[in-house]
Nucleic acid binder design. Structure first.
Length: 867
RNA sequence: GGGCGGUUAGCUCAGUUGGUCAGAGCGCCUGCCUUACAAGCAGGAGGUCGCCCGUUCGAGCCGGGCACCGCCCACCA
């Protein structure tokens, strides 16, 4: 139990100061090691969440803060519900992002990765990781995240790397991973291929050139339209629609490619839209994805005019070789102009692929890369969502979004020309005549016995991320961790990585463990800047959650984020965070009031009065509601429901109702004390998953030995305490108090003035004293001299006011008249509705009855108000 | 080109299967330093639920259309 000095300290702390308590509270949790479960039991009885691993170079942003808050709510709830709960924590090596960071650092030293070489560079990245890798971990702690920090993982850990190698080799052996010359999205900024998902379309304005290609026959020319004249150097055909009468006679003829002189056959293909441009399409299989397909279909030659260095190749011709693409375009246009071959140019807006990584325009080109065939892997991932084993929250529209993508999935280019990442477990003979794929390096080529060299490429970061839920638990070894916590239960993420990550985890999880890696996927809001733009550093629209924590406290930030989030994107609202800090302060003060005023007793409630029964009933309902809302991932509604219960019901009404009893030092206050403590204890418990710091701090001031709130039990709802009678009686009381207060305010009764009155209404037998106290009435008993001055309508009748000298009589009568009119209107409306035979016969009986009850009530109130 | 979402109080947003006079926070107005909290208490004003048709006894909620705004997917030069 708290000592006198602690209580004195509490008495003096009239405001909740998050900065003074948060680190201490977090330290208590860490010391108690309650975030670290031992791996016992199996996954069906235990509960686990794998965090979307933040980039090891990252810093906490609003997305993390919301996502982390949600996961923490879920894991704390389950932990309190008695499940052995593990929040799997760690960081992602984030190949490209990290490599870019370290390259920047090298650039400031006047060096480069090429200069220091691969081995030294990778060493530098590891150094970087040692120095800065813990930043984001500490930031998650600031948020209060109850992850298992004792068991932190990193996607480049030795064990994790082994899992990645194992998966690659197994997929290769199954024939799902293969090497191919194929059209890829080449990112000239990174000097690497990237996947389709890392490409974004941007709308830009280009010039659409019309270029005349002379016919070999000498009888005129055929005109094509293009926005990329420089790629003409790699043209190998011209296509027209077979039904396009303008060109049917030319099909099979040959045109001569200007500047190059190559002979281009004019071929028919349905792909060509006769209505676009000139209706004739230059075919460049080496640099356009469509043309690549057409080229394959027609067996066309493939010419690569642009190289992986982003410059024109020798095949582009002596005149252009070595030029940057932009320069080559100018040069080609100039050369064509010289020959008078450009017959038109007009501005043209269209979508063009850009690299999401480097921001550079994608150069589609043909490259020898490693691909993963996804069709077979997708099948069970599709089935799982279709039969409901995998559930998105909300189900619409994400289930369909997920399925649409999987049902149209294409091969995944998994190799990257980077240095930081999981190097492919692939070895080539020196001339690449033989390829060996295996988890261990061969001494020599198994086929020819020659020396081997490891493939320089690394894997797409998302390849390793796809294994996160099980590779973090020791897979492919059958570890106790894996048995206890895999499959995980819930995966919390924003929609932007449903394809990049979620779907791939599902596919890899099923393929390699035979089980779905998780079953429930709540999709979170994206938090936008207050002006509706994207939050981003480059736009200057970012808001740092740590600044917000410093200013308002972690609980406030968590509450604010949870309250503002929904299934929609939302603008960041500092007001919601403020609401959270107000709530923390309110809870703090209500708790001070209770703790400093109760007699020290156990917290087993003993209802004595109707308000006791009322609050206990309301709390049970709240317990049910909050539990259901949290379990169905409706965090915003849960947050606001908690706010209403604590602020509205507990503070505004229950505490106010019991004050007279509490201040009566003569009375036996043990039952009331028990009830107050019970109410406080319940509120703290329900609020703890959302606002862990302030609730834990207050918990430590409660009498008795309780241990940590974070390790306490979650309440089972007790339906025996539900008391509709008490809820009705106190509900009416609340309405009546409010009605009288409104009247007082409107007729300008001085705030402190007690008004003589009597209650002419049923249902206030137990609450008359409360009504008198809260509405500042002096209740008259027996026969009363003098006339009723006025009356105020309350549920079940009215309060009659006697000789209140201070009231504004005109205002009072005006007020009564307005109320009469309003009641008459309602009565007319209700009567009309009930007179409608269709309504009475077709609406459900309870709806009709409710309408009748309402009518009776309005009529009673009108009668009490008189004429 | 497909698909999806939004449009509710001055602002930011809730409104679960259609059924009490449509809600919250903030802001605004009025009155209160009432011994937990002035980061508070009490009260109030403010909305043709984007527009049009329809289904229904009854529509913010369901169906059709329209208008703006936004997002995702997509290989029309």
């Amino acid at each position: 139990m708290p000592g006198d000095d602690r209580l004195e300290q509490l008495r003096q702390r009239t405001r909740y100061a998050p900065a003074d308590v948060e680190s201490g509270v977090f330290g208590r949790w860490e010391d108690a090691r309650i975030f670290h479960p031992e791996p016992e039991g199996d996954a069906s009885e235990n509960f686990s969440i794998a965090i979307p691993p933040p980039n090891v170079t990252g810093v906490l942003h609003m997305g993390h803060a919301l996502n982390g808050s949600i996961q923490d709510v879920v894991i704390r709830l389950k932990r309190m519900q008695g499940r052995r709960s593990k929040w799997i924590f760690g960081t992602d090596h984030a190949g490209i992002a990290t490599q870019v960071q370290v390259e920047k650092q090298l650039a400031t030293e006047g060096s480069s990765r090429q200069e220091i070489g691969r081995e030294a560079f990778v060493g530098r990245v590891w150094e970087w990781r040692e120095r800065f890798g813990s930043t984001i971990v500490e930031q998650f702690k600031r948020l209060g995240a109850s992850a298992d920090y004792e068991d932190e993982r990193f996607t480049m850990d030795d064990e994790y790397v082994r899992a990645v190698m194992h998966v690659f080799v197994r997929l290769y052996e199954k024939g799902l991973i293969y090497r191919d010359n194929y059209m890829v999205n080449w990112d000239p900024g990174l000097g690497s291929a990237i996947s389709d998902l890392e490409v974004e379309q941007r709308n830009v304005e280009d010039v659409l050139y019309s270029i005349d290609y002379p016919l070999e026959s000498g009888s005129g020319s055929i005109t094509i339209a293009t926005v990329r004249p420089e790629t003409m150097l790699a043209d190998t055909a011209i296509a027209v629609n077979p039904d396009d009468e303008r060109y049917t006679r030319l099909i099979g003829e040959t045109a001569i490619l200007p500047l190059v002189g190559r002979r281009l056959t004019i071929i028919p293909d349905d792909y060509v839209d006769p209505d676009f441009g000139t209706g004739a399409l230059k075919i460049t299989p080496g640099h356009d994805p469509n043309d690549f397909e057409i080229g394959r279909k027609h067996g066309l030659e493939v010419v690569s005019a642009i190289g992986e260095d982003g410059r024109m190749t020798a095949d582009a011709g002596e005149q252009f070789a070595g030029m940057e693409v932009e320069a080559a375009r100018q040069a080609v246009v100039a050369a064509l102009d010289e020959q008078g071959l450009i017959s038109a140019r007009r501005p043209y807006q269209h979508d063009v692929p850009y690299s999401h990584r480097s921001g550079r325009r994608i150069e589609p080109l043909i490259s020898l890369q490693w691909f993963c065939d996804m069709d077979k892997l997708a099948e069970p991932a599709i089935a799982a969502a279709k039969d409901g084993r995998l559930r998105f929250h909300p189900e619409k529209p994400w289930t369909k979004v997920y399925l649409d993508w999987l049902e149209n999935i294409r091969p995944w280019c998994v190799s990257r020309q980077l240095w930081w990442g999981h190097q492919l477990p692939v070895w080539y003979c020196d001339d690449e005549a033989h390829t060996y794929v295996g988890e261990k390096a061969p001494d020599k080529c198994p086929e020819c016995g020659g020396p081997v060299t490891r493939a320089p490429d690394v894997l797409d970061t998302w390849f390793s991320s796809a294994l996160w839920p099980f590779a973090t638990l020791g897979w492919p070894k059958e570890t106790p961790q894996l048995a206890a916590f895999y499959p995980t239960d819930v995966l919390v993420t924003a929609r932007d990585i449903i394809f990049l990550w979620v779907a791939r985890m599902v596919m890899m999880g099923v393929e390699f463990t035979g089980e779905l890696p998780f079953t429930d996927v709540p999709i979170t809001s994206v938090i936008q800047a207050p002006d509706g733009r994207r939050m981003s550093k480059s736009l200057g629209t970012g808001i740092d959650p740590l600044d917000e924590i410093d200013e308002h406290g972690a609980d406030a930030v968590r509450f604010g984020l949870l309250a503002m989030s929904s299934t929609q994107d939302v603008r960041y609202s500092e007001k919601r965070v403020k609401q959270g800090s107000d709530l923390a302060n309110k809870l703090w003060n209500a708790s001070r009031f209770v703790i400093l005023n109760v007699d020290e007793v156990a917290a087993e409630p003993r209802p004595e009065t109707v308000e006791d029964r009322w609050i206990l009933s309301r709390l049970e309902r709240a317990t049910d509601d909050i539990t259901a809302l949290l379990e169905s991932f409706q965090f915003s509604r849960a947050a606001l429901a908690l706010y209403d219960v604590l602020w509205g019901e507990v503070c505004d009404w229950y505490i106010e109702l019991v004050k007279p009893r509490l201040y009566d030092k003569e009375a036996d206050r043990s039952a009331l004390s028990a009830n107050l403590l019970h109410v406080l204890e319940r509120v703290l418990t329900l609020l703890h998953p959302l606002m862990p710091f302030v609730t834990e701090e207050i918990w430590s001031f409660l009498p008795g030995e309780r241990g940590l709130l974070a390790a306490s039990g979650w309440p089972e709802s007790n339906s025996a305490a539900i008391d509709p009678d008490a809820e009705r009686v106190v509900g009416d009381l609340i309405e009546a108090v409010t009605a009288v207060r409104r009247w007082r305010d409107e007729v300008r009764v001085p705030a402190a003035k007690r008004v003589r009155a009597r209650i002419a209404a049923d249902g206030y037998e137990k609450t008359a004293a409360h009504l008198a106290q809260l509405a500042r009435l002096e209740l008259l008993e027996g026969e009363v001299n003098g006339d009723v001055e006025t009356s105020v309508a309350i549920p079940g009748g009215a309060v009659q006011i006697y000789g209140a000298e201070d009231i504004d009589a005109g205002e009072a009568e005006k007020r009564r008249q307005e109320k009469r009119e309003q009641l008459k209107g309602e009565i007319k409306r209700a009567k009309g509705k009930l007179a409608n035979e269709q309504f009475v016969s077709k609406a459900p009986p309870e709806v009709v009855q409710a309408e009748r009850d309402k009518l009776a009530r309005f009529q009673a109130e009108l009668e009490e108000l008189g004429e």
